[in-house]
Computed example of a mutant assay.
Amino acid sequence: MRLLIANPNRTEAITDACATLARAAASPGTEIVPWTNRDGPPVIDSLYSDSMAGRSLARSLVTIAQRVDAVVLAGFGSYGTGAVKEALDIPVIGLPEAAMAFAAPLCHRFVIVTTSPRMIPYTQDLVHALGFAARCAAVRAVGLPPVGKDEPPAPEVVRSLAAEVAAAHASAGADLAILGGSRLSPYAAALRGCTPLVVIEPLACAVALAESLARLGLRQSKAGKFAPPPRPLGEYD
Rank of each mutant, 00 (worst) to 15 (best):
G217S: 02
L88Y: 05
G77L: 11
V139M: 04
S60M: 11
P146W: 13
P232G: 04
T36P: 05
T81E: 12
P146D: 12
T63A: 11
R10Q: 12
P145F: 03
C136A: 05
Q220Y: 07
T114I: 04
P229A: 12
A83F: 09
H108M: 06
P105I: 03
S51R: 08
P153E: 15
M52W: 13
S182Q: 10
S185I: 03
P28H: 06
F132R: 10
P229W: 08
P121H: 10
C107P: 00
V68D: 03
K225D: 11
R10I: 05
R23E: 15
D150A: 08
A190T: 07
F102T: 13
C205Q: 09
R159F: 00
V33G: 07
D16N: 12
R109H: 02
S78D: 15
L144N: 14
A101D: 10
M119D: 13
L61V: 03
L126H: 06
G143A: 15
A98P: 00
V198G: 01
G75D: 12
L47K: 05
A65W: 07
L213G: 00
V92F: 02
V111N: 14
V113C: 09
P145I: 01
G180M: 01
I112V: 15
R159M: 01
Q220D: 14
E151S: 08
P28F: 03
A83Q: 13
V157S: 01
L191A: 00
